[in-house]
Design a protein around this nucleic acid. Structure first.
Lengths: 231, 231
DNA sequence: CCGGATCCGAATCGATACTG
DNA sequence: CAGTATCGATTCGGATCCGG
């Protein structure tokens, strides 16, 4: 029952014994967006077997990473403990690191609301965002639509479709300044391989509504440079 | 042969597909200390089966994380690529995170030179180290003895026993200001659970040579606070 | 000794079916 | 909704063996 030990007395080893099992860190990624029910997690991780999901949730609870919270007459949710939330910078940094080697999606690869939410948070540049005018974006990729508001250096992301309760306060009920619809090529815009203009010209990204020039602001605000020593 | 896909198009997913397999991140941890031969890695990871080690090394090469470098008439070493070295802040942060939940060592748990080296780098506080007088420590834990020099805000760690080539330039051939011999309780000194004085009084840490008061400097310089949002 | 490859039992994972 | 149960497919772990 005790997870197979690596036989070392070391912080890194302890960490991978807690969150290094298959799927564990992806569960943490989704929970970083907000508390989630078992079914939400299953939907966000379509390929996870249900027995693995419940095993991992049990292990993460034993490891003090996740807490099971019953909601009166509403089922129950899983949420990260304080200790689990300390993984946020690590998961974001891993996301930036992995982003650099993402090719194009394999067939069957999907984009989920939670993963795209974390991707935006991963790619967000505080320094750039802080010096931009306040902007509200709406971004649709595949079946997922997100809202993102950059104001005062802070980024807020919420899920429009599939709908989910907003995290961290009330949802800004404002019209977006720009609506962007994109395919997987949005990755190449964020990495700088594809300029905003070329992306629009090539039909990879559509500005459905609002000033097309705002796509350049988006690309400047959400950007992952290859070869970055993220932190 | 292709590693089992998680079926998501996401940076975090890509990252765990590259370095999320069992043992992979521990190999990276050891390679962050310096290039290592197959046999060095096997010694530093005593419980890894050799087939897993060679499989992981192959996968890490395919993932662009590790490079295999033949040394003329001297065998060959594995080393991190530039991309692999970008994992350093992530591994250090994971080490800090895991450190907080390390209990006492399970029976059979060992401390290796590379893991202790990374632990020191994990625990090092640049801000504190930069404001301290230059100090050279010698730290023995179990069978491992390390040298650590803090000077000008920079930390240099080298392995005295078992001996290994120093990393990043010539080894400072100076007498240490203090020689510290400790058991696993050194963890509680670094976490602040155990004060330097109590550690000495309790016989958990011995100052073999030099001013015992330097243990306090050590504890201030190498410290991991529970509940820290590392970066 | 170095750098693996091979073999095999044990444990885990993945897919699907099923239940309170 | 929130999981168990089952079972074949993979992977892991431990030991041994092999070519330079």
């Amino acid at each position: 029952m005790a997870s197979r030990s690596y036989g070392q007395y070391c912080g890194v080893t302890t960490a991978v014994e807690r969150v290094g099992e298959r799927w564990a860190l992806l569960i943490v990624r989704d929970l970083l967006v907000g508390p989630r029910r078992y079914t939400d997690l299953k939907q966000g991780l379509p390929k996870i077997p249900t027995n693995i999901l419940s095993t991992r949730l049990k292990e993460l609870q034993e490891g003090g990473v996740v807490r099971r919270v019953p909601i009166p007459r509403c089922g129950l949710v899983y949420e990260l403990t304080e200790y689990g939330r300390e993984l946020e910078p690590i998961v974001l940094a891993l996301g930036r690191w992995g982003f650099q080697q993402m090719g194009d999606p394999g067939e069957g690869d999907i984009v989920t609301a939670d993963s795209l939410t974390m991707a935006l948070r991963t790619a967000y540049r505080v320094d750039v965002g802080g010096s931009m005018p306040e902007t509200t974006y709406e971004l649709a990729v595949g079946l997922v639509t997100l809202g993102a508001r950059v104001a005062g250096g802070a980024l807020q992301v919420w899920q429009i479709a599939p709908a989910a309760p907003p995290v961290g306060g009330a949802l800004p009920d404002v019209e977006p300044d720009v609506r962007i619809a994109a395919g997987p090529a949005i990755r190449r815009v964020i990495s700088g391989e594809l300029s905003p203009d070329d992306a629009i010209a090539g039909g990879h990204v559509h500005v459905v509504d609002g000033d097309p020039a705002l796509l350049a602001r988006f690309a400047a605000t959400f950007h992952i440079e290859p070869g970055e020593r993220a932190a």
